[in-house]
């Protein structure tokens, strides 16, 4: 499904990923854990095509195709989904409209018929129950005034509607209460199938109590320093990241690349 091979990524003059390699086979859920500043979010953003990261070496193959050569919307249409750590507000754009625009854009790109309003409504109603979201919330602008938990549920709802083949969840569990955490885990589990995979990026083991991964990778200092089975997460929880071998964990501040020109809303 996904092959990351010796990936080096910089932003400006600082290298954030220094040779990440990992493989996620079809049907597997892999977790990437690591301390703050280890490059976890950068990895997620690079997979989705976010600016302004620069890939200086290495490659990423998605179903055998060069993922990095595709623009973000092409990646999405090909089945790659990024669950955002900080889902963005889009004032003035109703969530329902956003969802339908996204789904139909992907369907068009894949040469499928667009979904009409009635079918779409039925689809959303079925999926929103899985994430326990009120219909009224979907009539509001995207994430506008949503609580942290509502935003994350909205991410999972989008994932369920778009049905990606590869879901990359960037700390989707951060800041969630136990109910929301359960919803996130259930969402990922719902999609689990032999031809779908997920890369779950997390700081804590908490999510992995609800969502048992096939493999756990530890990212530190821009590299995968350890990989193992589900037990590795528990070990990290017990002993922390400090006991890990490999290069010293540097404290890095990861910029998400916000342009400073300001935005008008």
């Amino acid at each position: 499904m996904l092959l990351i091979d010796d990936l080096h990524v910089s932003i400006g003059d600082s290298e954030i990923l220094s040779g990440v390699s990992l493989e996620v086979p079809d049907g597997e859920i892999h977790a990437v854990m690591g301390p703050n500043g280890s490059g976890k979010s950068t990895l997620a953003h690079v997979l989705a095509g976010r600016d302004p990261y620069e890939v200086t070496a290495g490659r990423v193959l998605y179903e055998g195709v060069d993922l990095l050569a595709m623009v973000p919307e092409e990646r999405a249409a090909a089945g790659v989904f990024l669950g955002f750590q900080h889902p963005v507000e889009i004032p003035g754009v109703p969530t329902m409209y956003f969802l339908r625009t996204a789904l139909n854009a992907q369907r068009r790109a894949r040469g499928q018929e667009e979904l009409g309003p009635v079918e779409f409504l039925a689809l959303v109603d079925a999926k929103r129950r899985l994430v326990e979201m009120e219909r009224a919330l979907l009539d509001r602008a995207v994430n506008d005034g949503f609580s942290g938990g509502e935003r994350k549920r909205n991410e999972i709802l989008q994932m369920l509607i778009l049905e990606p083949r590869l879901a990359v969840l960037d700390e989707t569990d951060s800041g969630l209460d136990i109910d929301a955490l359960r919803v996130v885990a259930a969402g990922v589990t719902t999609l689990r199938s032999p031809d779908r995979s997920a890369l779950v990026i997390t700081h804590h083991q908490r999510l992995l109590d609800h969502l048992v991964p096939d493999r756990v990778h530890v990212l530190a200092g821009g590299r995968i320093v350890r990989s193992g089975g589900p037990d590795l997460a528990a070990e990290l929880e017990a002993h922390g990241y400090a006991t890990l071998g490999g290069p010293a964990v540097e404290s890095l501040t990861v910029s998400t690349g916000t342009v400073s020109t300001g935005t008008a809303r």
Partner: peptide, 23 residues
């Protein structure tokens, strides 16, 4: 206020499959 389109919002739409122009 005077500003440009929010690049984060633009990326959010594109990451959901909406082509840049449409986004």
């Amino acid at each position: 206020a005077v500003g440009q389109l929010d690049p984060d919002a633009l990326f959010y739409l594109r990451a959901r499959g909406v082509p840049e122009r449409e986004a």
